[in-house]
Amino acid sequence: MTDDTTPMTDGGTDEEARTDGGPPATVPPDDETPTWSERKERSQGLAQLTYQYFERSRREDEDLRTESTYVERDVLGFPTWPHETIRNLAITSFFLGIMLLVASIMPGHFGDPANPGSTPAIILPDWYLYWSFGLLKLDPINPDLAVLGGNIVMSNELLGLIAHGAIFGVITLVPFLNKGNARRPVEEPGWAALGVAGVILAITLAVLAIQNFFPVPLELLFSLVFMLPVAGGVITYAVLKTMREGYMYDLNRRYYMLRPPK
């Protein structure tokens, strides 16, 4: 064993030539190390657990079904033929007819061929991406988000992208944030207000995207883009809160009549 600081042929020391101090590649089995049969048992145990869980959930289902107060039908549901089929055919042909009608009376405008050399005065996607396009025009608020002496932290495009991500993120998270059995907007005025605000925001963002068509000062338009959704949300909340009393009274009465308390 040489001294640690003894120079080696490549100029380093013996210390560097060693491994990084980790454990040796093979670990001798000790009391804690599971044997192969134990490992096998454990994996079978998982399967066992899964099986037991499924049994339990099946039992749970069955219990719920037997305890249920639902009245079993004596007919087998709404007949697929002819009732459901005819209804679906009617709806389908109605929609198809509407689409063909609209397509025949309003064929699309076809513009000039692409010219990479001349940027048109108005660049627009199809109407359903206006909101997205509007999100790319948030540059007036970009400097406000700056922290470093007025220099913008991110490009305007990146700001738009982050706004997209935020919107999609919030929409995705909705079912995890709003739980419970409420199904009507009146039952949850806050969430209904949020939804209305979202819809209005989509519309105002679309208007922001086609700002050229609106003879409104940009400052005012930009304020309206964010004020109108808030206003819409507040109004919705107020209206629903007011309606709620009457609605809930009606609902409770109906539920009470149908399902008197035990």
Partner: peptide, 30 residues
């Protein structure tokens, strides 16, 4: 929306081209 966007580009009109241009710029800003 991606379906719609890709279809919008296909005719290679002025609007198609510049919509795609914005798409590229957006992608590059990521």
């Amino acid at each position: 929306l991606l379906f719609g966007f890709s279809g919008y580009v296909l005719p290679w009109k002025q609007l198609s081209f510049w919509a795609a241009q914005i798409g590229v710029e957006l992608a590059l800003a990521t």
